[in-house]
Design a protein around this nucleic acid. Structure first.
Lengths: 177, 177
DNA sequence: GGCCATTTGTTTAAAGTTCAAGGAGGGGCC
DNA sequence: GGCCCCTCCTTGAACTTTAAACAAATGGCC
């Protein structure tokens, strides 16, 4: 495909600029990325579904709760930490509540608010399944990468994440970032 | 948490080995990774849902078909290329067929077989939406990374993907790898 | 040919996600 | 107080994904 002569000096008629296609090498990088992510995500989802009876995202929610003071977080805060919508979180917490791993509690300060609280039972599930999960992550990722690659991966993904962080997110909750 | 004295010289009673927990730094890497992936995936899904009326995975299927000889692929082959299950593919193709972007065709050599074929209309959708999609990928990823980081990302994700590739996958279709 | 394990692709139902809409409370402003 | 806009969270419907079960065709083997 050839760029039209006007590509660098567009006339008065509005033309869409020539798309900045990916080079061969960029395409290879992008495909490796998508494949790696897809395979890894599926792998961890299956591992956790099998050993903990929940998808990876749900597991991540329990982890965030376990790390929080008093093992509880406001719904909106948890949603932001986990990078999911509040709607999705609502459904997820409903499911985890049915399992007895989380329960909801009203917020005394704000009657609109809800806390998601990790139950003892939920904590126990986490305690029992965490070793298997870390091991899976290690085998799939860290065991295969050199320390330099690990560092590099961290930097790269941090950059990408920062670029996509909704601008307002946590503007008033800066300690979450 | 302290490792028991027996950790390095286990006695005759079977004990689970002390889990290889992630270090602080490894945790930071892992979280950046998960966050970046989550945000990026959501971002691209929304972009394509808005501009092309389909999720990212479905778009990927059309791309694979467009690149294939005669714009067609056997279901199993396409599933392997896209790293998804055949079941998921069946549903996806059904949906794309309803849109008129793909149609199924019987395989003359193998009466069990089906080809998924990209229609002209499907190709047209791809042609119109590809520029917007590449641009989104560029802005979110390539524009933010140095050439070295891009190269590094490619290597790292290739390593991770290889480690998770089901052993049999494409054993008899080596040219797909 | 006949048998049997395997491959191919689909189907069903359950589970998870998304999107748009909505109820209820907070908080500023008059 | 009363009004209005915003935030917090939930809901229901539509859609996508998963897991398990299935029919049909293949291919090796006797």
């Amino acid at each position: 495909m050839k760029a039209p002569a006007s590509a660098s000096t567009p006339g008065s008629v509005a033309e869409p600029p020539e798309p900045r296609w990916l080079t061969q090498e960029e395409q290879r990088v992008w495909r490796s990325f998508m494949e790696g992510v897809t395979l890894l995500d599926d792998h961890l989802d299956r591992q956790l579904q099998r050993d903990a009876g929940m998808p990876h995202v749900y597991y991540g929610l329990l982890v965030k709760l376990a790390e929080a003071p008093r093992r509880r977080l406001r719904m909106t805060e948890l949603a932001m930490l986990a990078k999911i919508t509040r709607s999705r979180l609502s459904h997820a917490i409903a499911r985890l509540e049915k399992n007895g791993w989380v329960h909801r509690e009203d917020c005394p300060d704000d009657k609109r608010g809800q806390f998601a609280v990790l139950t003892d039972q939920g904590y126990e599930v986490l305690r029992q399944t965490a070793p298997g999960h870390v091991e899976a992550v290690r085998q799939a990722v860290f065991d295969r990468l050199t320390p330099e690659q690990q560092k590099s991966l961290g930097e790269i993904m941090r950059i990408i994440a920062e670029g996509l962080q909704p601008a307002e997110a946590g503007a008033d909750l800066p300690w979450l970032r």
